[in-house]
């Protein structure tokens, strides 16, 4: 049994043709693998390597360089909390404390008992005018307060299928598109 589904491996094999040189497909391929599994297992990385005809060590070297690739299991909803300067000045430390209590974990990377949540402290998210900010389920949540953290967590506890129906971010000012086919990236949190 392979770690990645056969249709995904087919999709990965088709990626190199999209780039001037095939190697550029490595990150898009790891993206697909991570979406399917939630995180990158050694087996998944070596299957990606085989599909792209690259050395497994090389693929792992790329995966470990970038912070958005996860080599350990993560919560279904992962909070990327910005604690860089502009957010720190606006109370990011408080946000982290509240979040830890709300999801019941002690440290970054730890997955909550129900498997729903984990968090990570990240560098500037490029939305400093809304500090403090987190990225959650592929959207930014802004102007965070303790109350907002609680409701972000509670909403996801109450409606576990929330993400599948598409969460609207407070930053998203576009009208809701008809969602016949959900965008792949919003299907799972990564």
């Amino acid at each position: 049994m392979s770690a990645l589904s056969s249709h995904l491996l087919e999709e990965i094999k088709a990626l190199p043709a999209k780039y001037p040189q095939p190697r550029s497909a490595v990150m898009p391929a790891l993206d697909l693998a991570q979406e399917e599994l939630g995180h990158l297992t050694p087996e998944a990385m070596s299957e990606v390597a085989v599909a792209l005809q690259l050395d497994p060590g090389y693929v792992e070297g790329v995966a470990t360089f970038y912070t958005l690739f996860h080599l350990e299991p993560v919560g279904k909803h992962r909070f990327y909390v910005c604690t860089n300067l502009s957010c720190m000045l606006r109370g990011a430390e408080d946000v982290v404390d509240r979040l830890k209590a709300a999801i019941g974990v002690r440290e970054p990377g730890e997955v909550s008992k129900d498997g729903l949540f984990s968090y990570e402290e990240v560098e500037c998210l490029g939305a400093c005018e809304y500090a403090p900010v987190v990225r959650l389920d592929h959207r930014y949540e802004v102007d965070l307060t303790r109350g907002k953290i609680d409701s972000l967590v509670n909403d996801r506890r109450l409606v576990r299928s929330h993400v599948k129906t598409g969460v609207r971010s407070s930053l998203d000012t576009t009208p809701e598109p008809p969602r016949k086919k959900p965008v792949r990236r919003t299907k799972k949190s990564g």
């Binding site: 500037c124 490029g126 939305a127 400093c128 005018e129």
Partner: peptide, 10 residues
């Protein structure tokens, strides 16, 4: 765009 304090490209 990842320079702390910069959000204008976004």
């Amino acid at each position: 765009e990842s320079e702390p304090g910069s959000a204008k490209d976004r």
